[in-house]
Amino acid sequence: MTFSHTQLNYFPGCSLATTAKENNASLIYFLEQFDIGLKEIPDWNCCGSSSTHSIDPGLALALASRNLFLAPDDKPLLIACPGCHLRLGEAKLTLTTNAKKRTRVEQHFGKPFHADLKLMHFFELLAEMSCAGLFKDLTGRLKNLKIASYYGCMLARPPRMNRLPNHHGLIEKTMTALGGDPVQWGFSGICCGTFLSVSRPAIASRLVNRIMKGAIQSGAECIVTACAMCHLNLEIRCAPENRIPVFHFSEILSLARDGKASREWLNRHLIDPVPVLNTRWKM
């Protein structure tokens, strides 16, 4: 196999390190199967998250910058969480375009900022793997599993970043290539409510239940999401009557590769995904 990336630097972020360990483990496992190794950047910190971005832009830039300065620039930095990817991407843009802030940050870390550090979202890596033909032998593996692809807000971004690559449709395209059957539905790009799940749970519940009900009505057997925050909200704010299993993208990819998914990942789901999987595979 010849593929351009055999080793990448990796920023997991707080969600994948804690609440979404199954996302992290399945991502690492999936990439290992293609001989792509991930090297976690040493002693990384929180990307800043929505909270610092919302009320303290200076802190948001400082937190994201430390991670950018910790990352070796010899290889792309892979980021699996869409939130972290956006926060680090915005910081990189600010450091590239604002000389005054860059000088202050460089002075703090005692070294120059590498503007050509490549921040790679998991979607970009997957698109490259697909183009390189790595999934050729995996056709039909998902046995027509009906999938509602859910992006939440991860594809939306501010106008100043709208020249960066857009990966709309990537989940559908990949699932189809692997033998899945993505449904057409109306909620793939509706925000899950993020932190309002804590401070205004009624609002998040209304959004989540609309999304879950929409997936059920579309005939999907499960939802596939590439965001750990969405995964958590869909599971915790869903009413019992609207429950439909939600998979991390990386779990479904591993399932397509191996015909099974680790029990350790599945046991961490609040909505049991095993009955749906048992219709096609022996779990």
């Binding site: 390190a17 910190n45 929180c46 909270s51 610092t52 802190l59 932190f195 804590v198 401070s199």
Partner: peptide, 20 residues
Amino acid sequence: VLSFHQKVIDSISRYGRTHK
């Protein structure tokens, strides 16, 4: 909402990461 954001920032200040 503001109080939640402040709790997140406090957590980052204590640990460098968020402790949910």
